[in-house]
């Protein structure tokens, strides 16, 4: 099975759900085992939920995507410009999740 490695970063308070650690190196299969399609951001979100998330899943995922109010950046670009969950991950990508729900 071939794999890809991506760098995942959590901030804005989200890191508290992930062992209070901001930066994680994540290695995932390069194709989705269920349908053999190339691994996309949607797969990564589910993977993070099932493997790295330590508490309060409802603060990260809602209806199989990130909860409204969480910004996602793909190599510093707003994921809304990259096809959101359909973005196909490449080895070395940097994915940032920022919560905007915490106090200002």
């Amino acid at each position: 099975m071939t794999t890809i490695s991506v760098k995942v970063e959590f901030s804005g308070g989200l890191e508290l759900l992930f062992s209070n650690q901001r930066s994680h190196a994540v290695t995932i299969p390069s194709t989705d085992p269920t349908d053999s399609a190339p691994t996309n951001l949607q797969y990564l979100i589910t993977y993070l939920r099932d493997n790295l998330l330590k508490e309060r899943v409802e603060l990260f995922v809602e209806n199989e995507t990130v909860r409204p109010g969480i910004l996602v950046l793909v190599n510093d670009t707003d994921w809304e410009l990259e096809g959101e969950g359909d973005y196909v991950l490449k080895d070395g990508d940097e994915i940032v999740f920022i919560s905007t729900l915490h106090g200002g």
Binding site: S11, G13, L71, V96, T100, H102, G104
Partner: peptide, 21 residues
């Protein structure tokens, strides 16, 4: 918009604190 404030802080690498009371 909050989204733009957060993006501004992120792109400018501003130093801020985010923990719930």
């Amino acid at each position: 918009y909050e989204k733009e404030i957060v993006m501004y802080a992120y792109f400018k690498k501003l130093d801020y604190f985010s923990t719930e009371c």
